[in-house]
Amino acid sequence: MSMLNTSTVSHPASFLLVGIPGLEATQFWIAFPFCIMYAIAVVGNITILFIIKIEPSLHEPMYLFLAMLAITDVVLSTSTLPKMLGIFWLDSREIGFRACLTQMFFVHAFSTVESGVLMAMALDRFIAICYPLRHSSILSIPVTMAIGSLVLTRGVLLVSPLSILVRRLPFCGHRLISHSYCEHMAVVKLVCGNVRANIIYGLFMGFMVVGFDVLVISVSYAMILRTVMRLPSTEARLKAVSTCASHTCVILAFYFPALFTLLTHRFGHHIPHHLHIMVANLYLLLPPMLNPIVYGIRTRQIQDRVIHLFQLRGI
């Protein structure tokens, strides 16, 4: 009977999230800019979705991918920020075991989805600039929706094993997660068993997603740059480059903190822990906040529609 008990995997009923280790005294005030960023992200992305939905002229691949990005951003930020604010303001640090695994799944799955959508948007710009006459035939609406479905499926299939691997590991009563949300490696550090499979699969998934998507994005923009340099006039070159400038800003805002977080968990032991957690938090807040601002400013059709809506309401 004792052997049966020792072979049973032990899970705590709940975990305790620290917040930002080392900054517990000041995280009450840190929560205010986080809350503002979250509000901008939710309002901005919902506005983008609403405008794309009501404006028939925006029912094109570029804007459909933008709508997918907006949905992903809302899910990604909402899966962490409300609980994070509860920790910072109310000291509500406890999170159930299943709720923690659910949050972990949503964070990593929709981070993967966001990377896939950014890759799809780069491909859309590549086809639009390099093959403008064939753009509508190559990227039709059904093809665009199929790409979105594949990106979502990829995220779910790649991240699901993480939750399965964590569920089969013993925690031996360890409950304190040194993080603001249930990030995979932060949870795995509490395990008292062999976590080699989790570490290997986490690295494999991270480098496969980021490596493949960044490679496709880089090749797409290299081909775009080559095509733009062949355009006859400076005005035409500037116009082509300006259509990609907003996408480039979004890509940099997403991948830099993503790579920093991924590599710091495994190799950056000399980096202050509070700095790592702050970047990890901003990774889930900064792109969702910037995306609607950048695309709203850089995309004339969306900008005009927003101004028109405000004028109708007398604002």
Rank of each mutant, 00 (worst) to 15 (best):
I302F: 02
R196W: 08
M145V: 11
S111H: 03
L76P: 02
L290P: 09
F32M: 11
G155I: 13
E183N: 12
C182S: 11
A70F: 02
F34W: 07
L81P: 03
S178G: 05
A236W: 02
Y38Q: 04
G202T: 11
R93A: 11
V250W: 00
L152W: 08
G148V: 08
L17M: 14
M84P: 01
A236L: 14
Y255S: 03
N45A: 06
T78Y: 06
A25Q: 13
L309P: 07
P257A: 09
F65H: 06
L81D: 03
L69Q: 13
E235D: 11
R230G: 14
I217P: 07
S14F: 15
S233W: 01
V241S: 06
L157Q: 03
Q103R: 05
A280K: 00
V250L: 13
A41V: 07
M104I: 05
A70P: 02
K83L: 10
T112D: 07
T78F: 11
E55L: 07
I87Y: 05
I200T: 12
G22V: 06
C130E: 09
R93G: 03
T80K: 05
A222K: 11
A146K: 10
H184G: 02
Q301V: 12
T144H: 00
M1A: 11
H11P: 04
I138Y: 12
G206K: 02
V241H: 06
N45D: 06
V191I: 14
I277T: 15
L123A: 09
S233P: 02
S14P: 01
T112P: 04
F254I: 05
H274K: 10
T299C: 11
V188K: 03
P257S: 09
T243P: 00
V188Y: 01
L165S: 06
G193A: 12
P170V: 07
M3G: 15
T78H: 05
Y63W: 10
I315D: 06
L158C: 10
W89C: 05
I30A: 05
P288K: 03
V9N: 04
L169S: 14
V151N: 04
S115M: 14
I315E: 07
R226A: 10
I46Q: 04
T264Y: 03
I54Q: 14
L238H: 10
F106M: 15
L259Q: 08
A280W: 00
P56L: 03
V216G: 06
A222W: 15
F34C: 15
Y63P: 00
T243V: 08
F106S: 08
P132W: 03
V159M: 12
I147Y: 01
M119G: 12
V18E: 13
M278E: 02
I200R: 13
